[in-house]
């Protein structure tokens, strides 16, 4: 995209950028392991393997060189983001389908890295969410909730047995190990059980200290990684700030009835908010490129996330919001081109 001067030669390569983004995800992955178990590691390995294989197939079919494209890390990052977004006990074939759709359909059919209009990881996520809605709600009970509920904790062997052979320990069913996510639980409690927020708080199943129980720590870890990325100048502040402040303001304005709606802080520290704001919406290929455009892009995602969470059919809406705003990117870039220095702002005939 055309930006005004000064043009500064960047010494960082694509590979370094992708590596730094992956490093920034490490705190989030560690917290994920603490709350949801070790299965995420095997999921990540499987996803990365599938990503590299499908990327190679696509490159061979398109007669492109393998090494430069495989080693740039973009396929690996896509698969990591997708795996972090889906439940840790997702069956193996879901990971395979999701990742191969991300790479083959969302990325290579549109022309490969740099040409894809939609965020590949989120396309894979949406395909899974639309096709297997039941499996996508099977989040295991977070470790700090095991004591408060009569839920069971699967060890790593049992989890792998479930993921690969669909076997659960005897006298157990899937409902005994999984639990609705805070956003999901809050939505059902508010809509169908007609409870008030303070009643839901007293039950202690939804609210943690500031956000959704367990998920708040995950969000804080992603926030830390994201702030490090901004400090390293890998991502600019415009998109996350636009996203988070729009979500905060929406929750503030529409959440005046505190008995019926979640607080702004709850929205910021639940679900995929921070992962979306710092890692998914900031994808350099599918996001807007001008500073003003980026703020609008981020704010649009924030507004859509609030709309989907509050009035939509799904508990969380980051993926849909990102894809919807991806569609607007060419328009945003067109209308927010910065003025060239010395030119009059009003067009002359």
């Amino acid at each position: 995209m055309i930006r005004s001067s000064p043009y500064i030669l960047q010494k960082t390569t694509l590979q370094q950028i992708m590596l730094k983004v992956i490093y920034a995800l490490i705190p989030g992955i560690l917290v994920y392991i603490y709350f949801f178990g070790w299965a995420i590691i095997s999921n990540l390995l499987l996803a990365i393997g599938v990503a590299l294989i499908t990327e190679s197939i696509a490159l061979l079919l398109r007669k492109r060189p393998l090494k430069p494209y495989l080693s740039d890390g973009s396929a690996i990052l896509t698969s990591i983001l997708l795996t972090l977004a889906i439940p840790s006990i997702a069956p193996w074939w879901m990971i395979v389908i999701g990742v191969s759709f991300s790479i083959l359909i969302a990325k290579h059919v549109y022309g490969g890295l740099g040409y894809n209009p939609f965020n590949p990881a989120m396309v894979g996520y949406i395909i899974l969410l639309v096709s297997f809605p039941l499996e996508m709600t099977h989040w295991v009970t977070p470790i700090n909730m095991i004591e408060h509920t009569d839920k069971l904790l699967l060890n790593i062997t049992q989890t792998l047995q479930y993921q690969f052979f669909n076997l659960l320990p005897t006298h157990t069913n899937i409902d005994a190990i999984t639990m609705a996510t805070p956003l999901d639980e809050l939505k059902t409690a508010l809509n169908s059980s007609a409870k008030t927020v303070s009643e839901i708080k007293d039950e202690g199943m939804v609210y943690g200290y500031i956000g959704g129980i367990a998920w708040e720590w995950l969000n804080i870890a992603y926030l830390i990684g994201g702030l490090w990325l901004i400090q390293q100048r890998i991502i600019s502040w415009h998109i996350p700030i636009g996203f988070l402040s729009a979500l905060f303001l929406m929750a503030l304005f529409f959440g005046t009835d505190i008995d019926q709606s979640a607080s702004p802080l709850f929205h910021l520290f639940s679900g995929a908010t921070m992962l979306g704001a710092f890692f998914i919406a900031t994808d350099p290929i599918t996001a807007a490129t001008t500073p003003k455009g980026r703020i609008i892009f981020g704010a649009g995602i924030g507004i859509l996330v609030y709309i989907i969470r509050t009035w939509g059919g799904y508990p969380d809406g980051v993926a849909f919001a990102v894809l919807l705003m991806n569609m607007l990117v060419p328009l945003l870039d067109y209308y927010t081109q910065p003025k060239v220095f010395g030119h009059d702002s009003s067009p002359k005939e």
Partner: peptide, 15 residues
């Protein structure tokens, strides 16, 4: 078979 809902839904037709 688990069923792959996407193929039944309109996006599946387009793809």
């Amino acid at each position: 078979y688990h069923g792959f809902l996407l193929a039944i839904l309109p996006p599946g037709a387009f793809i």
